[in-house]
Amino acid sequence: MTAPALVLDGVTHAFGDRVALDGFTLTVAPGQVTALVGLNGAGKTTALRALTGRLRPGGGTVRVLGHEPSRLPPAVAARFGHVVGAPLVQPELTVVENLWCAALLHGLRRRRAAEAAHDTAERLGLAPWCDARARALSAGNHQRLGIACATLHRPAALVLDEPTSALDPQGVVVVRGLVRDLAAEGTAVLVSSHHLDEVARVAGEVVVLHAGRDVGRLEPGGDGTTDGTTGGTSIEQRFFAMVLEADTSSGTGDRPGTRTGGPA
């Protein structure tokens, strides 16, 4: 059996009195696309920050390609990519310069970095803006550039936080295609998103995180459709039912800040 590329095992973390992750466990195998969904404050970004080494959790084990993420050896880090929050984009540099810098930071040699920068700009539809400063880009193209910077070295493990939040429909299709291509090459992909229909299209597994805990799995397009509908129940309805059940069973449904509710 192939070892998982991304591992969160019993991870706990709190910001003061507020519990962000409560024994959260998740693994993503090579070639697998897993989506992490949840309400605001559910703990998604905390989990992703722990995976990128930006935050050392209070407890539990975190591994990226078998290593502790805050101490990744350079050769291992060269096979990892991530966009969590602000991307690896410098506003004063042009699109192609940003890509070139990202390629160097990912460990590519100078000549290969220049080739990867131009190839990636073409692949993600950024070629028309190659010489534009990043600060002049629209929010959507800025997000595309961030994803391009995180993936131009074709990583073996990839973490993306809300990768399509600012994208137009064409951009969503481009990023979806990129994620599928990388997974086909064997990349383990973990995506956090609020767009339930979108994750249903791209992910093989949808994990619901609520109040820092894994409260279940959603079947993406379970009846073979690609719109996330199973037996006439949309993925959105199933998500809210799962969250409501978690609140009810833990007795937190009436607590301020944890009340949940779905569409009527």
């Binding site: 080494g53 990226v64 990744l72 350079p74 929050g85 991307p87 930071l105 460990g107």
Partner: peptide, 14 residues
């Protein structure tokens, strides 16, 4: 200040 420093984690260039 802007949070972009988070992107400098887990890179081949330390």
């Amino acid at each position: 200040e802007t949070g972009t420093a988070g992107a400098l984690f887990a890179l081949a260039t330390p």
